[in-house]
Amino acid sequence: MKILTQVLITAIMATVMAFTATAVATGAVEPSPSKRITICLLPKKKGLPYFTTCSKGAQQAADELGDVELIYDGPTDGSPEKAASMVDRWALRGVDVIAVSPNDPEVLGQAMKKAREKGIRVITWDADAAPATREFMVNQATAREIGHALVDAMAKDLGSDQPEGKVAIITATLTAANQNEWIKYMKERLEKYPKLTLIATKPSNEDQRLAFQIAQDLMKAHPDLKGIFGISSVAFPGAAEAVKQAGNSGKVLVTGLATPNDMKAYVKDGTVKSVVLWNTVDLGYLTVHAAHALATGTLKPGQTSFTAGRLGERKIEGDQILLGQILVFTKDNIDQFDF
């Protein structure tokens, strides 16, 4: 009898819990009625302003198109395994298009291949995976372009054709697939500037404080350090803050990838001369348009262009849908952007 009461009470508690969960999830997605097109947008890591701004652009596109059910979700800890599980679940739910920004091309590629076998249309955006795993890629910049742009920005900021001095990289983690790819091309580009020497590549484990400490240590251990690349979203402000607090603004340059709003203060006080990125709102916007066109059949392999709402005609090279060029935000133009 006791046991029975106990089980009953627990049952009630659990039901209450389930209902609370239902109530909490205000943003619940209703199962889509037939003619609507469900598009899933998967970021590498949910909770980063970079991806949040992308999702805003994606929502704009979905609102404009009218018949799109947009799902934006990704792992809050950036784990590729969790991201792959999400792709698995979406594939089983039978959504129309999955747009993946793979944090690890192999891990996600495997899940994307499985989704395609189930007849789901799969594209990549922001970062790419193996061509067999997706139909198109919405490409804002290749790893190669990003790596080169970062080094070029640093070289330009240092102020001569053949800049001299020591530079260091503060990365996300030592295993971060994207960052490792960028570093490869950064090293390639550094060969163009033989007098720039890369003295260290240190992981910040996605921890702003750690990036801050590493930047401090790098400046003390190498008093002649000229520049720091902060190539993860939290390493960049962490490194910039360290340079600023050490009173080295302008003496040690910091550059990296970030949304302009998050780095505005550092650009204005001269700690950071250039921030490299692209229009993230447009990237999300273009991705949803491409996904929609693919699902409705207006986008087919072999096309050389397609129309994407307010962005107009967009070029397609092979299976790459191009967003446009990499932007470099400086003191002069950063106020023109709000994202």
Binding site: A21, V24, A25, G27, A28, V29, K46, G47, I71, Y72, D73, G74, P75, T76, K82, S85, M86, R89, R93
Partner: peptide, 10 residues
């Protein structure tokens, strides 16, 4: 929760 509400933080 992932299937239904699509919010990892939940």
């Amino acid at each position: 929760v992932g299937w239904r509400w699509q919010r990892d933080e939940l």
